[in-house]
Write a protein that binds this DNA or RNA. Structure first.
Lengths: 196, 196
DNA sequence: CTACAGTTCCTAGATATATTAGGCAAACAC
DNA sequence: GTGTTTGCCTAATATATCTAGGAACTGTAG
């Protein structure tokens, strides 16, 4: 019988596509094997187990997402950069729900973390996006965490049908970005006085 | 043989505890049956299937969370209410990771949605918290979505080890809430002029 | 107290999944 | 062409969900 020509790469990519189609938590070795027309056991020559497969998908997705963001923020600064970052993030998450879920659902093993630069890259991109807001540590980290939280939370809730109000979700998103910009541009001093 | 005294209630509560212990996605009918000392099949007299079990856990958790939030915001207004809401939210999510995940991972069936008031309650609580900021629709919905996103995103990332920088996570949280307050207190007009 | 009715829990079994061990044969190296 | 590597196979085990049908427990009415 002719060989299917599997490699760890192709298996990972197929798993990512499957995740986008049926949801990250529903990818199975069996379904993947079926899609290649091979037996389940055959995949174990290329991938240690399901856990590693998911980790690979997560890493692939994280790279792709970072690439999109890097392309989006290049040559932009201030609110422009922030909005570009945010939209690249959201567009990717909505276009690739399974891949995006992978980036969040899998916490990379220390080995993987050490062997890849994606996470460092992502932090650098975040800081680059924030540069024009003139924040210094620890405000930079705090603001970065707020932004990541807001982006992640928004796309997650949106993708899971968490926004049931008829208000257009895209407009809410734009307004939320306006709100975040306000927060960044007026980032509170360390000893905040009540504002009202 | 003496009966175990199962009910849908007790099974659901046990499933919620199990979820907090091992993670929502790792709850199984088998493990649950073991914890009661009964056979797997016995649980199917009380719960239709795994899907329904998860839905029940999600509903239980949503109620609990709404209760905590309601207690926290009672008698508070403005930033005070917002911070109390946020902290109740985060405390619950961190103390009950499995239950919290359930509230997000399960999108309730229309039947469940109709039979419960939790979701309406949650929206009402959110609007009540925002009352002092003097927002009108659609800004109210937009701001509410931003807050929910930020809260959800933050606790999810925190619980999944997404914040690896040494900066104290709790302080970042407090500063993020300060930032959100700034955004709410200065919610952008419909036709925002650039601020820099 | 007894018989009936409903419910709880059981045994047995079908199906799906992850994963390992060991084998045959295709692809490649020389 | 021979030999080695490697890709995919069969076979088997363990665990999961879920259904069908039976037995035993519990409460209720005579």
């Amino acid at each position: 019988m002719a060989r299917a020509g599997l490699t760890a790469e192709r298996v990972t990519r197929a798993a990512a596509d499957l995740a986008d189609a049926v949801g990250f938590e529903n990818i199975t070795v069996s379904a993947l094997a079926r899609s290649f027309g091979v037996k389940d056991a055959s995949l174990y020559s290329h991938v240690r187990n399901l856990r590693e497969l998911r980790e690979r998908v997560a890493l692939l997705a994280a790279e792709e997402l970072a690439d999109r963001i890097a392309a989006a923020v290049a040559g932009r600064a201030g609110k422009d950069a922030m909005v570009a970052f945010a939209n690249a993030y959201r567009d990717y998450a909505l276009a690739h729900p399974g891949r995006y879920t992978a980036t969040q659902a899998v916490q990379p093993s220390p080995a993987v973390l050490a062997g890849s630069t994606v996470h460092v890259r992502t932090v650098e991109l975040t800081h680059a996006m924030l540069r024009a807001y003139d924040l210094v540590e620890p405000d930079l980290t705090d603001a970065g965490r707020l932004l990541r939280s807001a982006f992640h939370g928004y796309v997650t809730l949106e993708a899971n049908g968490g926004f049931r109000h008829p208000r257009d979700v895209r407009r809410s998103w734009e307004r939320s970005l306006d709100g975040l910009h306000i927060a960044l541009a007026n980032w509170p001093a360390k000893d905040p006085r009540p504002l009202h």
